[in-house]
């Protein structure tokens, strides 16, 4: 299967030197344009083949008697999603989840970036904070859920606490690494241009660490989105996590699968938005 497969190319080789030139440059360009179009259609077909096949398999499987009760077909799932969209129910859950994820993310972001920068600037702060960080970091965010419920009860605060626990260390450690690994020559250049230590921090260290900080925030955002879902499954009465767990309990696989699609879509959208934001901010 592997042999020779790397010889297949999705785009035709450009400008084949050995082929004899035929016709005017213009007609040649048109022909190459047509070939390009064909290649592009071919590439599209290749990209679409597997997803379409999977959806078809899903539709067929949903009709077979043994599976049907736990696997509604694509059409049924879409219909349910549409109904929940119209009734506004879906919106309530999505909004609740987003709100919590955002709140936890912002809290973790502020604490994590501030602590990471402080640790990068001072040996003492670094060594003192390193102890608690290394002690608490391995405890996975999930393990905090029962304690969060004991401390804050069922609801918003518990969920936000779990999200903070699930993303703060990623943000902190990425910030710290980025702020510690500033190119020595950049610092030297700023020094020879007359910058003070404080100016080095604001004009060199922070902007230079920005891509690393943004990377940490983006990974943490995925963590926050996961954290909100699992916390909602246990510690709330609304949100997407709660929605699919309740649907499972009341035997509504269409809502469960619909919810999963929405979860994936929102995760994708968040990632896309963040990347767009990152490109605007960093230029690197």
């Amino acid at each position: 299967m592997m042999a020779g497969s790397d010889d297949i190319r999705l785009r035709p080789r450009r400008g084949g030197a050995l082929r004899p030139a035929a016709g005017s440059p213009q007609s040649r360009r048109r022909r190459r344009g047509a070939a390009d179009l064909r290649a592009r259609m071919q590439a599209l077909a290749i990209r679409l083949a597997l997803p379409l096949l999977l959806i078809a398999l899903w539709a067929v499987a949903a009709r077979s008697p043994g599976v049907a009760p736990v696997l509604p077909g694509p059409a049924a799932v879409l219909a349910t999603l549409w109904q929940m969209t119209i009734s506004g129910e879906l919106f309530v859950h999505v909004a609740a989840s987003l709100q919590r994820a955002f709140a936890g993310f912002v809290v973790a972001g502020i604490i994590g970036v501030a602590a990471g920068l402080a640790m990068s600037q001072s040996r003492l702060v670094n060594d003192i904070l390193a102890g608690p960080v290394e002690l608490l970091r391995p405890i996975s965010s999930i393990a905090w859920i029962p304690l969060a419920i004991l401390w804050f009860g069922i609801g918003f605060n518990s969920v936000v606490f779990v999200i903070v626990a699930s993303c703060i260390f990623i943000i902190l450690l990425n910030t710290l690494a980025a702020a510690q690994n500033v190119d020595r020559d950049l610092v030297n250049a700023a020094l020879t241009l007359g910058a003070t230590p404080r100016q080095i921090f604001t004009k060199v260290t922070v902007p230079s660490a920005m891509p690393g900080i943004m990377l940490g925030l983006r990974i943490a955002m995925t963590g926050a989105w996961g954290g909100v879902l699992i916390a909602e499954m246990i510690a709330t009465r609304e949100g997407l996590g709660y929605m699919i767990v309740r649907a499972q309990a009341s035997y509504r696989p269409d809502i469960v699968i619909g919810g999963m699609i929405v979860i994936g879509f929102v995760g994708y959208a968040l990632n896309w938005l963040f990347l767009a934001l990152q490109r605007r901010i960093t230029h690197v």
Binding site: D183, D185, L186, N188, A189, T192, V204, P207, H283
Partner: peptide, 20 residues
């Protein structure tokens, strides 16, 4: 210490990538 009376040019250019 370093000062603005001695400008320096680096082999690695040492340009700030986030500034045009």
């Amino acid at each position: 210490g370093p000062g603005a009376d001695r400008g320096m040019v680096f082999q690695s250019y040492a340009l700030f990538p986030w500034r045009n």
